[in-house]
Simulated scan of single mutants.
Amino acid sequence: MDSRDKLLEAVNELVGAEDARQKLDAIEAVLPAARRYGAALTGELETLNALVRLAVEAPETYKRVLDLVDDKRKEAGLLPLRDPVPRYDKVSYMREFMQQKRQRLRRAADIENLMRPEKDRLVGKSRIEFMDRQAAKWKEQRDRMIERAREAAGTERLSKEALDNLIRQFWANVDAELDALEDLAREERLKRGIVTPGISAGALHATLRQKEPRR
């Protein structure tokens, strides 16, 4: 079988396979080693090495072949081989996600300071350590939530849509908890006769939801 026939076989394997995404993951996982010293897939995945070689030798052609695979899978009513979100959008999404995460951590530290006496406020290193602990706590809570969802669904791997919805709900719950904690902290300060200037969480969120005026 010549190289073109092997490539055709590999392509059609991705077109028809129910586990095509996992096969693509295997291809892309071996690529760094394939580029450095010619590593290849083995066993049941060996037939996909034609695509590994194509990715190493002609990356743009490889991308076009994957586009073709996705088109054929779509025609057959199968799930897409790849996430349809373009790479640029993924990078933007991750940048926005990390920014929101930092904002939540800063807000959690600010709320903690509202609850503390002036002399015990979080500043400098203690503030950073608090934010690190809070980030670890949220990660543990999120992972437990995902694990419970997997057990309830009887699967080791949730669909991307289910996972996205779950994580979105998790952060909505975190935001609601922060809103409640902030309101409680402000009420406690008022009881102690301490007036804290600021905008309520509800007012801020309403402002953020407003559309920018057309220029």
Results as ranks from 00 to 15, higher is better:
Phe170Trp: 04
Ala162Tyr: 02
Glu156Leu: 12
Ile111His: 00
Leu81Asp: 02
Glu161Arg: 15
Arg142Tyr: 09
Glu161Asn: 11
Leu158Thr: 06
Ile146His: 03
Glu96Asn: 12
Asp132Leu: 13
Met145Glu: 12
Arg148Thr: 13
Ile111Gln: 02
Tyr93Ile: 07
Ala136Val: 05
Met115Gly: 12
Leu114Gly: 02
Glu129Val: 12
Asp164Ile: 07
Ser159Pro: 06
Arg106Ala: 12
Asp120Glu: 15
Asp164Thr: 13
Gln141Ser: 10
Lys119Arg: 14
Thr155Val: 15
Met115His: 04
Arg144Asn: 13
Ala162Asp: 14
Arg144Asp: 14
Ala109Gly: 03
Ala109Pro: 01
Glu161Pro: 01
Arg142Phe: 09
Val85Arg: 15
Gln134Phe: 07
Leu163His: 12
Arg127Met: 11
Asp89Arg: 14
Val85Lys: 15
Ile128Lys: 14
Val85Leu: 15
Gly124Arg: 07
Val85Ser: 11
Ala109Lys: 00
Arg102Glu: 13
Gly77Asn: 05
Lys160Cys: 01
Gln141Cys: 04
Ala172His: 10
Val91Thr: 10
Asp164Met: 09
Met145Tyr: 09
Arg168Asp: 15
Asp120Thr: 01
Lys125Cys: 06
Arg142Ser: 08
Leu105Lys: 03
Asp120Ser: 10
Leu114Trp: 02
Phe130Trp: 05
Ser92Asp: 11
Ala152Thr: 12
Leu163Glu: 14
Arg116Ala: 08
Met98His: 12
Leu122Asp: 01
Lys125Met: 11
Pro86Thr: 06
Ile146Gly: 00
Arg144Trp: 08
Leu122Trp: 00
